[in-house]
């Protein structure tokens, strides 16, 4: 008997320790990356590194700005494509689609979320890159196809599931009786969606977009394979870009052989982590608050 209770007590303690892991891990990642980037932060100030434009590791110049802008460009362009399409699909699935269609499409969206990013990349190279190269002249531009636009298209498809999934949950949390209140005033379904459902779910929808944004911001392999990777700030969607995650992925090989290079890359990872954390924590906080309100 005592043995059983002792076992239970020990298990309780051990499990508590395990439960601390996720919270601790977030901090560990932050401090680990910070620790490794101290070498470069000791020589250059953080704003100089972040907003410096020249990237010549061999000369000891590590300006991250072109990469930061590359990420921002690709991510924003992807969001411009992904947000309307995802939200319209989510509205359709939640408000209009018959159950049979909804239950068929939801697994498809989940499946899309499970496709490895390398496969997205291969598909992008096979299909989107040539497409962009082909349409560029129509816009008076020349492009190899390896461009911001190609990255944005591939990324947009990758964030569909995130935005759709979260906003479907947000729409589901809007009470049916509230929709009926609007309908029984003689509003059409669309008017009800526009004025009531979207407004009621606004915070959650913004959160879903923020989660999509942070998902896109950190995506590495698929983007890396289609954006061209030239460290210049892009001026048009047909230009190539070099996003931050791609920088990290392309240079792990050399980083231990050039002084300070590892510090610069770890700083890049830290910047990436911080931006994604801000968006994620904000979005999750909004969602938790909305969930509490709904109860």
């Amino acid at each position: 008997m005592v043995k059983r209770l002792l076992k239970d007590l020990l298990a309780r303690r051990a499990m508590f320790l395990f439960t601390a892991v996720p919270g601790v891990l977030v901090f560990l990642m932050f401090f680990g990356l910070y620790d490794r980037s101290r070498s470069i932060l000791a020589l250059h100030s953080f704003p100089d590194l972040l907003f410096g434009s020249s990237w010549f590791p061999l000369k000891g110049q590590f300006g991250l700005y072109p990469f930061l802008m590359g990420t921002v460009w690709v991510t924003l362009a992807a969001m411009i494509l992904a947000v309307p399409i995802s939200l319209l699909s989510a509205i359709y699935l939640s408000e209009y689609a018959p159950r049979r269609i909804r239950e068929t499409i939801k697994p498809v969206v989940d499946l899309l979320a499970g496709i490895p990013s390398v496969v997205f990349g291969v598909w992008g190279v096979l299909m989107i890159v040539p497409l962009v190269a082909k349409i560029a002249p129509a816009f008076g531009a020349y492009s190899t196809g390896y461009s911001v636009l190609a990255g944005a298209i591939v990324l947009a498809i990758m964030v569909f599931p995130t935005i759709i999934h979260v906003s479907l949950e947000v729409f589901a949390s809007v009470p049916r009786a509230l929709r009926e209140a609007s309908l029984s005033l003689g509003a059409t379904k669309w008017e009800t969606v526009k004025h009531v459902v979207l407004r009621k779910g606004l915070a959650g929808i913004i959160a879903s977009v923020a989660l999509g944004f942070s998902r896109a911001f950190g995506e590495t392999m698929a983007v890396l394979m289609v954006v061209g990777n030239t460290p210049i700030i892009p001026k048009s969607p047909f230009d190539s870009a070099y996003p931050l995650p791609a920088l990290l992925a392309n240079n792990y090989g050399e980083m231990m052989s050039i002084p300070l290079y590892d510090g610069a890359l770890m700083l890049a990872a830290l910047v990436l982590l911080l931006i994604v954390l801000v968006f994620n924590i904000g979005a999750r906080a909004v969602l938790i608050k909305a969930e509490r309100k709904a109860e």
């Binding site: 989660l211 995650p245 990872a269 938790i288």
Partner: peptide, 18 residues
């Protein structure tokens, strides 16, 4: 749960670096 959700959102390249 919050920490797990936040971890979920961290890009895999950052996991690689960490």
């Amino acid at each position: 749960r919050f920490a797990l959700d936040v971890l979920w959102g961290i890009p895999s390249i950052v996991y690689g670096a960490f």
